[in-house]
Design a protein around this nucleic acid. Structure first.
Length: 357
DNA sequence: CACGTCACGGTTGAG
DNA sequence: GACTCAACCGTGACG
């Protein structure tokens, strides 16, 4: 498996079908764009299809994240037992109620929020399938926990991005000026899992990422496998609350040798990524490097990245770092929401482990 | 020519 | 443990 090297696209770039580009590349795309380089040129330079460049940039502009979305898994269901219960209640109290009215009520009663409220069609289905016969006395004895409901995931789900931290603020301003803005500060990627993942792990992930990236960069010392970031992807979200999750993820292995290698410099940037790029097999690894810098160094411009932020050049101590990271995470955990500042600082921290300490 | 969009074939991971 | 299914991916092509 590990050998599963990718395919080569028309531009000569290597990619793995079905898998996201390495964060390093994604990052690079964003950075170059911020430097004013046109997407078509970025595409050629990095040898990534323009469709992909377009997509990544669009997402970045929209969410502030360079990270790929959460792949696989199931989206948490919105039709939790509690929601169904409420629907049933509404229907019982008003048999003629319309699905859309139920939807509104769910929102009004805070049974759901706009992010997890079932669609009208879902409600209709529920009415049809689960509540077909209203007559049936719900033995759900009422219950009243209006909001809190048992939505295991819900709460998580709730704020896809609402987190101020993220996308909104950050991203927006940033992209145009390549200035000091970290291209991708942390932010959440998409709305669902990702969001969560980030959510608590925000800092964490960020870290990991960096770690990862960096690590890989250094490759030298350790053989870093980016397992770290691995599952973070979505795993994070359910697990979120605990490092456990993380730890867990860590366990999962992934080999992502050095996708980021060339980007070593980018290290700092990685922060951009709210969370790891899922697992990318070594696939990119081998070729990766090559692929990243296929012919020419994209660093053409004098490695913009490098200049970029805070001490970008970090690749500090891989593993070591990891550990640190973990710890940090622990700490960070408390403050799931790390504003970029924090993030940044952390970033700095990266270069200067001190922060973590 | 640049770029947004989307079908396609693919992977992933929760359930 | 195999399977399902919905989510995401990047490419490549179209407009």
């Amino acid at each position: 498996m590990e050998q599963a090297y990718g395919e080569v696209n028309q531009l000569g770039g290597v990619f793995v079908n079905g898998r996201p580009l390495p964060n390093a590349i994604r990052l690079r795309i964003v950075e170059l764009a911020q430097l004013g380089i046109r997407p078509c040129d970025i595409s050629r330079q990095l040898r990534v299809s323009h469709g992909c460049v377009s997509k990544i940039l669009a997402r970045y502009n929209e969410t502030g994240s360079i990270l790929p979305g959460a792949i696989g898994g199931s989206k948490p269901r919105v039709t939790t037992p509690n929601v169904v219960k409420h629907i049933r209640e509404y229907k019982q109290s008003d048999p003629g109620i319309f699905a859309w009215e139920i939807r509104d009520r769910l929102l009004a009663d805070n049974v759901c929020d706009k992010y997890n409220v079932p669609s009208v069609s879902s409600i209709s289905r529920i009415l049809r399938n689960k509540i077909g016969n209203l007559s049936q006395p719900s033995q759900y004895e009422s219950s009243k926990q209006p909001t809190s409901q048992a939505l295991p995931y819900n709460h998580i789900y709730q704020y896809p991005y609402p987190n101020p931290i993220s996308p909104g603020s950050a991203k927006v301003g940033s992209h145009h000026h390549g200035v000091h803005m970290p291209p991708g500060h942390v932010s959440i990627a998409r709305s669902w899992p990702s969001a969560h993942s980030v959510n608590n792990i925000l800092g964490i992930r960020t870290f990991m990422e960096q770690t990862g990236a960096i690590t890989s960069a250094d490759g030298a010392v350790y053989s870093p496998k980016m397992e770290e970031w691995t599952s973070v992807n979505r795993t994070g979200f359910p697990t979120t609350q605990n490092i456990n999750g993380i730890e867990k993820s860590v366990e999962t292995d992934i080999k992502y040798p050095q996708a980021a290698s060339s980007l070593s410099t980018v290290g700092g940037f990685v922060q951009a990524c709210a969370y790891p790029s899922t697992n990318q097999y070594g696939v990119y690894g081998g070729p990766g490097a090559g692929y990243v810098t296929p012919g020419h160094h994209w660093q053409t411009q004098g490695s913009p990245l490098a200049h970029h932020g805070p001490g970008v050049t970090v690749h500090g101590g891989d593993m070591t770092f990891k550990h640190q990271v973990r710890e940090v995470m622990n700490r960070k955990q408390s403050s799931p929401i790390i504003k970029h500042q924090d993030t940044l600082s952390s970033v700095h921290g990266i270069s200067i482990p001190a922060s973590s300490t």
